[in-house]
Design a binder for these strands. Structure first.
Lengths: 242, 242
DNA sequence: GTAGGCTTCAAACAAACGTTTGAATGACGA
DNA sequence: TCGTCATTCAAACGTTTGTTTGAAGCCTAC
C-alpha cells in the first residue's frame, strides 16, 4: 500500500492563476446578488473553493477585488463602444453620422455583454447599475475614471450630430440617457413596479434595448424646453399644491 | 467660572417622541451619506445624541428603522403625486389631459421635496435613488408596496392620454422614466461623468427637472419602434463587432 | 406619596467582519 | 539534490457589528 494517506491531490492540472479567476467569478456572482458591503470574503472564498487568505494575497483587499471584478468586463465594454463609434465615423467619411447610430454604438456593447452566455452576462449589468448609485468613494472614483474618456468621446460625436443643441443641454441629456440605461439594466425583474412586463421579454435584453433606443433617441432630439413656459406651469402647480 | 461641569440638562422641554425624531433625522442623513449597510447603529445614535438601544426600542431593528426613514418622506410624496393627478383630471372634466401635465404631476412632488429647506430635501432623493438599486429583499418588497398604487394610477392616466400606445410599450416607457428620474436625483453631483454641469445649476433641482421633463416627454411620445428595421441595424452592427 | 407606564441608560452578548501571520506545499531551475 | 519562489493553508488577530438585558430615571394618575 503506497502511503498516500491524503487521497486528493490528483494533479491539479498545472493551472496558473486558476484560483484568481475562480475567486473573480465567485465574487462577481455574489456581489451581484447581495451588493458589495453585504458580501463577505468568507462567502466568496467558500464559493470559489479557495482559502480565505486568497483574496488578500491575489488582490490585496476587498475593495481591490471589487474593482477587479468591475474592470474585467467594464474595460472591454467601454473599449468596444469607442471602437464601434470610431468605425461608424470612419465609414461616414466627412459627413456627420446620425444620432441613432451613435446611440447604437453606446447601447450595443452592453447588449452584447448581456447576451454573453458565458459567466456574468446580464447579471453583471445589474451589479454595474448598482455600483453607479453606490456612495462609497472608491467606487465613485473608479467609475468616473473608467467612463471619462468614453463619455467625452460620445459627447463630441453627439455634438456633431446635433449642432443646434447647446452643449450644456447635451450634457444633461447624456446624463439622463446613462441613467435610464443603467437603471433599466440594473432593475429589470428586480422591482416589479410596472407589473405587466412579461418575464419572457424582461429576460430578453435585445428586445429591451429595442424599446429603450427609440425612447432615448426621441428624448435626445427633443425640442429645447421653453423655459419660461415651463416655469409658469411649474409655479402654477406648485402654488396650487402648497 | 460657574461650575457648569455638565452643561446640558436644562429642562428637556417635555418633548415626547423627540428621541425618535432625532434618531430618524440622524439615520436619514447617515444612510444617505454612506448607504444602509455601511451605516452603523452606533454612528446613528451617536449623531442623534441618543442611546444605542434607542433604535431597537423605538423601531425594533435596523431594517425597520430604514423603512421608517423612507416612509416618512416617500409616503407623502407619492400621495401628493396621486392627489395632483386627481386634481388635474377633475379640472379637465371628461376630456383626456395631456401627457405633459400627467408628467408634471409625477415630477413636481419630488421636486418640491428636493426644494424643502427642512432637513432631508434633495439628499433624501439620493437615498431613495440608491434604494431603488439595492438588492436587499426587504427594501425591494417595501418599495414595490409603496409604489404599486401610484404607478398603476399614472399608468392608467398615461394610457388615456396616449390611446395609440400599446400598454406594454407604455409600461416600458414608464420604467425608463422612473429610471432616468431616480438616477438623476440619486446621482447629480455624485458622479462627475458629465463634467460641465455648472455648480449653480446642479444644486438647483428646479432647473434640473425643467430639462428632464422635455426629455422624458419626447421619449414618452416617441414613435413606435420599427422593430424589423431596428433588428436589421442591430444585427448588422453585432455581426460586424463579433 | 406611591404604584405603574414608558423611556433611557451602561454594559455585555455572541457573531461576523477584513486582514495578517507563519508554517506547509509543490513546481522549477541550478 | 537542494534551494527558491509563488501559492495555499489553518489559525488567530483585533474590531465592529446588531441586538439584548436589567437596572435606573421620570412623568402621570391614583
Amino acid at each position: 500500500m503506497p502511503p498516500k494517506a491524503r487521497v486528493i491531490p490528483l494533479k491539479p492540472p498545472r493551472d496558473p492563476a486558476a484560483t484568481k479567476v475562480r475567486v473573480l467569478d465567485a465574487a462577481e456572482a455574489l456581489f451581484m446578488e447581495h451588493g458589495f458591503e453585504a458580501t463577505s470574503l468568507r462567502a466568496i472564498t467558500a464559493a470559489a473553493e479557495a482559502n480565505l487568505a486568497a483574496v488578500n494575497y491575489h488582490f490585496g483587499s476587498k475593495e481591490e477585488l471589487f474593482q477587479a471584478v468591475l474592470t474585467r468586463r467594464l474595460d472591454p465594454m467601454n473599449q468596444a463602444r469607442v471602437e464601434l463609434l470610431t468605425r461608424l465615423e470612419a465609414g461616414a467619411g466627412s459627413r456627420p453620422i446620425s444620432c441613432e447610430r451613435i446611440l447604437m454604438a453606446l447601447l450595443i456593447p452592453p447588449l452584447k455583454l448581456a447576451r454573453d452566455p458565458e459567466r456574468g452576462g446580464k447579471d453583471f449589468l445589474r451589479l454595474l447599475g448598482r455600483a453607479y448609485a453606490d456612495p462609497a468613494p472608491f467606487i465613485r472614483r473608479f467609475l468616473s475614471e473608467q467612463y471619462a474618456v468614453m463619455i467625452a468621446r460620445f459627447k463630441a460625436a453627439f455634438a456633431r450630430a446635433l449642432p443646434r443643441l447647446p452643449r450644456k443641454e447635451l450634457s444633461w441629456r447624456l446624463h439622463f440617457i446613462m441613467g435610464a440605461l443603467s437603471y433599466t439594466l440594473a432593475g429589470t425583474d428586480a422591482l416589479k413596479l410596472i407589473a405587466e412586463l412579461n418575464p419572457h421579454e424582461s429576460t430578453n435584453d435585445e428586445i429591451l434595448l429595442r424599446r429603450l433606443a427609440p425612447f432615448l433617441l426621441a428624448g435626445l432630439e427633443a425640442p429645447l424646453p421653453d423655459l419660461s413656459a415651463v416655469t409658469r406651469e411649474l409655479d402654477g402647480e406648485l402654488g396650487k399644491t402648497a
